[in-house]
Design a protein around this nucleic acid. Structure first.
Length: 189
DNA sequence: CTTAGGATCGCCT
DNA sequence: GGCGATCCTAAGC
């Protein structure tokens, strides 16, 4: 079996721990990407999670091996990227909500149709468009191309708060962000 | 500044 | 038929 440790993170850990550790990690897709500044954790026992009611055709990747991608379509329009974590079969993952764009700026601008760098990756749907993430990457290993992960630098300061855009478990503080970052989808308070 | 509506797919009741 | 782990645009205050 493949290792669940990537970029210095043990993806077999509970989702909220992985979500916190992912802040500051660099993620590239085909060489385009940046530094993760915002994540949200979801868990198999979590009413707000897609995996709460068990596997379906859409969410089956969440029940597969950790350190793999779960990509789903949101509101019929956007793609959203998750990193599967916890032990296999549990159905947990971390939603990647925002990046600080670092590499491949020209490609992101072209894909997003805006030259405003603040709008390139400041939301789960936006960053998938900027990085070219689609269903084609669903279930793929994060340890292999086109994915490329690099560890976070030491001394990262992480803040947390309630998750965005959900109607269940609204008070669970499983949204994590890089402190003071201007690249998040919405400010923390 | 805030609020409202449309786009449109997969899963639910 | 309804409702999302969203985003964009337009209109109102």
């Amino acid at each position: 079996m493949s290792s669940t440790i990537l970029a210095g993170i043990d993806f077999s850990s509970p989702s909220h721990l992985v979500a916190r550790q992912l802040i500051g990690v660099t993620v590239l897709v085909d060489g385009v990407g940046g530094r993760i500044v915002e994540t949200e954790a979801y868990d198999g026992e979590d009413p707000a999670s897609h995996s709460y009611s068990g596997p379906t055709d859409r969410n089956v990747a969440m029940f597969g091996p950790p350190a793999h991608a779960y990509v789903y379509r949101s509101y019929g329009i956007h793609w959203c990227l998750n990193f599967v974590c916890r032990e296999e079969g549990h159905g947990a993952g971390v939603l990647i909500r925002a990046l600080e764009p670092v590499t491949g700026l020209e490609t992101m601008v072209e894909r997003r149709g805006t030259t405003d760098h603040w709008l390139l990756c400041s939301g789960p749907g936006k960053l998938c468009q900027a990085l070219g993430v689609t269903r084609a990457l669903n279930g793929r290993s994060l340890a292999a191309a086109p994915f490329e992960l690099a560890p976070a630098p030491p001394g990262i300061e992480v803040v947390s708060g309630p998750r965005i855009g959900i109607s269940k478990a609204v008070d669970v503080p499983w949204r994590f962000g890089l402190a003071h970052s201007r690249w998040v989808s919405k400010p923390f308070r």
